[in-house]
């Protein structure tokens, strides 16, 4: 085991453990907070894989924006403090079977496929902003631009969906 692996394994354990807590905890807000932990640990994994820019973007977008949005949504949908009894649907057993099946299949396949493969991290410049930026704007310009259009569309869509003075009237008042 190399040093990187020594750090990676506990980080991965944290990520996995907290993600398991995300899907099993019976407190909504804690699920979001565990998600923060899991995503932070994953950002650490990215750092270990020399993907520095990706790691910080991960923290900035996921932790700073996505999770805040999720928390916002949780609060707007009147999440209770403490335990909720009905966070799991009746589908648990089937879901567990499918998830275990997925895990078994995927792990079997990837272990079989990459047993001997090893990453040479080199000087660690592979994930620097310069390298990624160069790749992004040299080879991935068209997808990048398309993505900007997508984001614009999402922006417009979200505005249309949430503004009540646009589109069809809501049937009943409901939330504030």
């Amino acid at each position: 085991m190399t040093g990187a692996e020594l750090v990676f394994v506990p980080l991965g354990a944290v990520a996995l453990g907290s993600s398991v807590l995300v899907v099993t905890t019976d407190q909504l807000v804690r699920a979001a907070l565990w998600l923060v932990v899991a995503l932070g640990a994953l950002a650490g994994c990215f750092l270990l894989l020399a993907a520095e820019l990706v790691a910080w973007v991960q923290v900035l977008i996921y932790v700073g924006a996505v999770v805040v949005l999720l928390l916002f949504g949780i609060m707007l949908t009147r999440a209770p403090i403490g335990r909720s009894v009905d966070l799991d649907s009746g589908n648990r057993v089937a879901a567990l079977v499918v998830a275990l099946g997925t895990a078994g299949t995927l792990v079997t396949v990837v272990v079989g496929g990459f047993r001997t493969a090893s990453i040479d991290l080199g000087d660690g410049s592979a994930g620097s902003a310069g390298t990624v930026g160069a790749g992004l704007f040299r080879y991935w310009v068209l997808p990048f631009e398309l993505l900007s259009v997508l984001l614009l569309a999402a922006l417009v869509g979200a505005i249309v969906l949430s503004r009540r003075d646009i589109g069809p009237r809501a049937r009943d008042g409901g939330e504030d």
Partner: peptide
């Protein structure tokens, strides 16, 4: 009408 059930079936099939 439970989308989770549909999705479960779908994923089980894929699996």
């Amino acid at each position: 009408g439970n989308p989770q059930l549909y999705l479960t079936g779908l994923l089980a099939g894929v699996l």
